[in-house]
């Protein structure tokens, strides 16, 4: 894998577009010639070249090579908003970053910090008056007037995934993480885990507490089916399924492909069509389900059972589900669990 950091901007005060290429052996070298991305990048160019929005582009491609196939390039691009986020991906200390870029990064970072000491949540401050229509971002308007939940920024059930990730500043929604961690410790060998139902009023209470941003200690509840059902309900209640509506048709049609093509197609879907946030959460969940299925001797939840139980919670159509498509959705869920290692390579 080639990792290159490409810092581009079209701001007048910084006149140094450059690329840093990390070659395979972790050595960096920098090119300071003016280098442009192929102008056919379409959607990317407008946003990314503006220094204010997306400063750094971390590309998984060798920019030196002149043959950049556009489609490939597009999918290999990822964004980081701030320099420090690069640390997750490469050895940031070894990177030569011009001081101007550093300064700017510090400036926008400072601007992001909450100014009002009593509101730690940035979005909370932004949604100060939820009915504000003038002088706010369009997204706020759409959110406020479309969603009944917006008054509660900690809402986790029945909202959009992105909203949770933004409001909680996390990668895995807290509900999912807490449930999975608990189940992994306490319930891998429980018979019928995920298949049994749980007490409705306790479930309601747990949901309420999650929606208020509290953490729920399942040790106190003393019923392993509560976190299991909570997790399923969370996925089911999302405004858009974790696999997204866009993937519905491709997944339902997957069985028409030959077996070896299916793997390639699913890999492509995950790489190109599934948003990265969704992919990470999906990977987390499926990985956990593979662990559950390893205990199927004691918990009786083999891949097939897990797929039946999770299938309709991972993906559903916009309208009504019907019997033939649900079969395909379930076999897709089974396919994900069975082929975890090949499918989730990133």
């Amino acid at each position: 894998m080639y990792v290159g950091v490409n810092v581009l901007q079209n701001r007048t005060d910084i006149k140094l577009p450059f690329t840093v290429n990390m070659v395979k052996n972790n050595q960096y070298h920098m090119n300071t010639g003016h280098r442009r991305l192929p102008h056919k990048l379409g959607n990317f160019t407008k946003n990314t070249f503006k220094f204010t929005k997306k400063t750094l582009i971390l590309t998984f491609i060798d920019l030196e090579s002149k043959e950049i196939r556009i489609a490939k390039f597009g999918r290999k691009i990822m964004y980081v908003d701030y320099l420090h986020k690069l640390k997750e991906h490469l050895h940031f200390d070894q990177l030569v970053v011009p001081s101007l870029v550093l300064e700017h990064d510090a400036k926008i970072l400072a601007a992001q910090k909450p100014s009002y000491p009593y509101s730690s949540d940035e979005s909370e401050a932004a949604v100060h008056n939820p009915k504000q229509q003038f002088g706010v971002k369009l997204q706020h308007l759409v959110l406020n007037y479309n969603s009944k939940f917006v008054h509660n920024p900690k809402q986790q059930f029945g909202v959009k995934l992105q909203q949770i990730l933004q409001n909680y500043k996390c990668v895995i929604p807290p509900v999912v993480e807490i449930c999975v961690e608990f189940l992994r410790k306490n319930a891998l060998d429980v018979e019928g885990i995920f298949r049994r139902s749980a007490n409705a009023s306790v479930l309601k209470d747990v949901q309420k507490r999650f929606n208020q941003g509290e953490t729920v200690d399942f040790d106190e509840i003393n019923d392993v089916h509560i976190p299991a059902v909570t997790m399923k309900t969370f996925l089911r209640d999302l405004q858009e399924p974790i696999l997204t509506f866009d993937l519905y048709q491709p997944v339902v049609r997957l069985h028409t492909l030959e077996e070896d093509r299916q793997l390639i197609e699913v890999q492509r879907l995950f790489r190109e069509e599934l948003p990265k946030e969704n992919y990470i959460i999906l990977k987390y969940i499926i990985h956990f389900l593979t662990q559950v299925s390893q205990y199927s001797d004691s918990n009786k939840m083999n891949t097939l059972n897990l797929a039946i139980v999770f299938g309709p919670n991972l993906l559903w159509p916009k309208g009504q589900a019907n019997l033939s498509t649900i079969g395909h959705l379930n076999s897709f869920a089974a396919y994900l669990i069975d082929n975890y290692t090949q499918l989730f390579v990133r």
Binding site: R195, K232, I308, V309, N313, A321, L323, I326
Partner: peptide, 13 residues
């Protein structure tokens, strides 16, 4: 029918 509450669409047919 399925006891999974999530199968409502199919069950209620």
């Amino acid at each position: 029918s399925s006891g999974q509450h999530d199968y409502k669409d199919i069950r209620t047919v």
